[in-house]
């Protein structure tokens, strides 16, 4: 195969033992998930879904923090769990991560400079002190920070937005091909959030860095990403270009989600009502046959409770897991 993908996830499954009070046994946090991101051009792929849909587990699997129960993750065609030591070191450099709480990534006792100097030392990115300083100021510039406003400060002296930009600068230092960003703006206030999303767009267009952007917020997904995957209870419900999926969703679950996103305009308020479940089961190991969304689906058919729909290619670049489209 000549045209290898940057990342390819094949039939990825992760089962956790559950210690829940209600459900003893196993939880399939990620259930037979496959997708890929291309190598030829940088893209931003959103992984969206409600809490518990398996987004973060996929991120941790891709970063190699946990091992899949079954299935594979290929980076440029190489299974990440079969890499040689050198390949693994390169992978850890080329695939970077940014998390939800930028504060947690800092040691409160050290100046913030340290999160930038450590990777320079660890990956031997600079030959001299001056070179290191140049690299740092370049990286800070790229994320829109001035060196004197952040260097020499302690993490608590900076805003959440500044801390998150430092984490992006840190990732940038390593010239990665992919940044896995797990809810990077969900704890950041609105006036500062836009700048961070714009930094992501810049890193993509100017430095060819791809992103796996994990979020529950479909509005920011529309803003930054090219493609989107919508997950529900560990499975992909719909996948395709963001301008199609979020504008004309096909899957009933994705329709419900999009209908529930509040439009920031008092003249476009919801006209109809929705019903929340009167009682709901908090465990997810229940629906073992059939479609996972069956219990909540407004368009369900008999078949849906018996057969799990495959993720089918319904249009050129769109995939949907729903019997309505098969």
């Amino acid at each position: 195969m000549e045209n290898e993908n940057l990342i390819e996830v094949n039939h990825l499954t992760k089962v956790f033992a559950s210690r829940g009070v209600m459900s003893k046994g196993q939880i399939k946090a990620v259930d037979d998930v496959s997708f890929s991101m291309p190598q030829e051009k940088p893209t931003i792929l959103t992984l969206a879904g409600e809490s518990g849909s398996g987004k973060t587990t996929i991120a941790r699997l891709i970063l190699g923090f946990i091992k899949p129960t079954s299935g594979k993750i290929l980076y440029q065609g190489r299974d990440i769990w079969k890499m040689t030591k050198d390949e693994w070191v390169r992978y850890r450099k080329e695939v970077q991560a940014v998390f939800q709480d930028p504060y947690g990534a800092f040691n409160p006792l050290h100046k913030v400079d340290r999160v930038l100097t450590i990777p320079i030392r660890k990956f031997k990115l600079a030959n001299s002190e001056e070179e290191a300083t140049d690299l740092i100021s370049e990286a800070l510039g790229v994320v829109g920070l001035k060196t004197d406003e952040v260097l020499g400060k302690y993490p608590h002296q900076l805003s959440g937005g500044q801390r998150q930009r430092i984490m992006l600068a840190r990732a940038f230092l390593l010239k990665p091909k992919l940044i896995v960003a797990d809810e990077p703006v969900s704890m950041i206030d609105a006036s500062l959030r836009a700048s961070i999303l714009n930094v992501m767009l810049d890193l993509k267009s100017k430095f060819s860095i791809s992103f796996l952007y994990i979020t529950h917020d479909l509005s920011t997904a529309r803003y930054v990403s090219d493609n989107i995957i919508v997950m529900y209870l560990g499975s992909i419900m719909e996948m395709g270009p963001v301008d199609k999926v979020l504008v004309k969703p096909l899957h009933p679950y994705v329709k419900l989600l999009i209908d529930s996103v509040p439009v920031p305009d008092p003249e476009r308020r919801w006209k109809n009502r929705i019903e929340l479940p009167r009682i709901e089961i908090t465990s997810q190991s229940l629906q073992t046959r059939g479609c996972k969304f069956y219990p909540r689906c407004s368009q369900r058919m008999e078949k849906c409770s018996k057969e799990r729909p495959d993720l089918a290619n319904v249009e050129e670049d769109r995939w949907v897991a729903c019997h309505l489209y098969q």
Partner: peptide, 10 residues
């Protein structure tokens, strides 16, 4: 979650 948010606002 967003669907629940909508229900709460309602």
């Amino acid at each position: 979650d967003v669907v629940v948010q909508r229900g709460i606002l309602q």
